[in-house]
Design a protein around this nucleic acid. Structure first.
Lengths: 169, 169
DNA sequence: GAGCTTACGTCAGCCTTGTTGACATTCCAA
DNA sequence: TTGGAATGTCAACAAGGCTGACGTAAGCTC
């Protein structure tokens, strides 16, 4: 460790950029992500669903009426992969697929009541963990957390992410 | 900027705990984690390895001479799953497995030169992304980022994580 | 020294979730 | 009318999780 010592004027301490600090950050991401998914994973196991189902439910809930192609782009998977998940969700009555009115090739996806119920259950668990973490870390930490996460995204996704934020303010 | 209004004495703004803010946090974690793994994933594809190999290389590098059981606990997978990965890494000459001296039942894992080379390649790419994100967000954001991530981990892992930190200061 | 426990490896089989490639259908738009 | 876009589906495959069972060597305990 050591090197790049104190805070110089105009250039704050760069200790947070040492390889050691960066490696700790990498590990923190790994471990935190595991914690982040642990609660929903436990719940999903009861229903014989997986993370892929959770993600689909989440984003359909966030953008009701979204098209399959849209969802594909957000989730970053192939249509075959998404279709498998979507098929079971539709068959199980959690998701409804409506043929588009303007463009009948498109399918607009909506959660049913049952779908909302599961989405809420998953969402509640995950929010509880995040809320606890936010509370423990404090509001300034949360702002920093969000800034770093945003900077870590692929540029195209970041644009999308920011768009979503504005829409919902 | 934006949200979380003023700081009241003793009890700062709690706007960062609204469901909407929490959902944005959840999405940020999802998208950021994808960015976080994107570069190593691309590199791994060249070598026909996957994320599991990366994780093994990372933690063996971090704790040279670690035992299989140790690694199992950190990675949170079964020994069968780890073994599959370890076997290929050993067969390909990236990892060396040495019989323990004190306890001959244990295998102590080390990276070979070749192993170090790949680990560095992966690590460099991932650190570059994190470094760029840190730089963009600033040192205070980084501190907050780390605090939230730590608070998000499972308690047992958090203890382990903090132990590692102390050892390396 | 006998017997239990631990650490590790391995075989077999299963699941989820990702991938490619090929192909059919529907329907908008030029 | 025809090309291309959006969607769905089939088949096959791979990575990387999992469980269960079994074997071996080594350490520990009585």
């Amino acid at each position: 460790m050591a090197d790049d010592g104190a805070g110089r004027p105009g250039g704050e301490s760069l200790l947070f950029l040492t390889d050691e600090q960066l490696k700790k950050g990498i590990e923190a991401m790994f471990f935190a992500y595991r914690g982040f998914t642990a609660d929903p994973d436990r719940i999903l196991a009861h229903y014989a669903y997986g993370r892929a189902h959770h993600r689909a439910l989440h984003f359909i809930n966030r953008a009701p009426g979204t098209t399959v192609n849209n969802l594909l782009a957000i989730l970053g998977v192939t249509k075959q992969s998404l279709n498998r998940v979507l098929r079971t969700l539709i068959a199980d009555g959690l998701v409804e697929s409506r043929v588009g009115t303007r463009d009948k090739r498109e399918r607009h996806l909506h959660l049913t009541d049952k779908g909302h119920a599961l989405e809420s259950e998953l969402s509640d668990a995950q929010r509880d963990r995040l809320r606890a973490a936010y509370r423990a870390a404090g509001p300034e930490a949360v702002a920093g957390f969000r800034r770093v996460l945003e900077a870590m995204m692929e540029p195209e996704i970041r644009r999308h992410f920011r768009t979503l934020r504005e829409e919902r303010a």
